[in-house]
Amino acid sequence: MRRQSEALLLLPLLPIFLVGLFPMLILALLGFAGLGLLGILLICAGLSDALDAHSDFNQHIIVEGYARRSEPAIDASNLHSAIRSATAMRVAGAALIVASICGLLYSRL
């Protein structure tokens, strides 16, 4: 009976490592200012997502006009879902900015 390698156990952890690699490199290379920059970029992505969701919703309303009752409800549900995810991104970005400001103040003292 052949024994499997323990390295295969680490394979499911590879995506987590790859996702966490970029923020750690930014923190290592740019410090707390890089963390603030990442927060600003996250807020911009959240705002862009929210604006795209509103644009899609308005386009559906204008193009389709009067539709069945279920179709506007589906569009409104999609809009609310996109707004919730955009809000979560904006809150995460604000938390990163607050963490970077706290880190800068703590390192200066």
Rank of each mutant, 00 (worst) to 15 (best):
M1D: 10
R3D: 06
A7N: 07
L9C: 06
L9S: 08
L9E: 11
L11P: 01
P12H: 04
P15H: 03
I16T: 12
F17E: 02
V19S: 08
L21G: 04
L21I: 02
P23Y: 04
M24H: 08
L25V: 09
I26P: 02
A28Q: 13
L30I: 05
L30T: 04
F32V: 00
L35G: 05
L35W: 03
L37D: 06
L38D: 04
G39S: 03
I40L: 11
I40E: 03
C44W: 10
A45Y: 07
G46K: 01
S48E: 08
A50V: 06
D52Q: 14
D52N: 12
H54C: 10
H54I: 10
S55H: 12
S55V: 08
D56L: 15
D56R: 15
F57S: 12
N58Y: 11
N58T: 09
N58D: 12
H60N: 14
I61Q: 13
I62S: 12
I62H: 12
G65L: 10
Y66V: 15
S70L: 09
P72S: 01
A73L: 15
S81G: 14
A82N: 13
I83N: 03
R84F: 08
A86L: 00
A86H: 01
A88H: 05
A92D: 03
A92T: 08
G93R: 04
G93K: 02
A94G: 15
A94H: 07
A94D: 05
A95C: 11
L96S: 00
L96Y: 01
L96F: 01
S100K: 02
G103L: 00
L104V: 06
L105S: 04
L105E: 04
Y106F: 15
Y106I: 10
R108L: 13
R108C: 06
L109H: 14
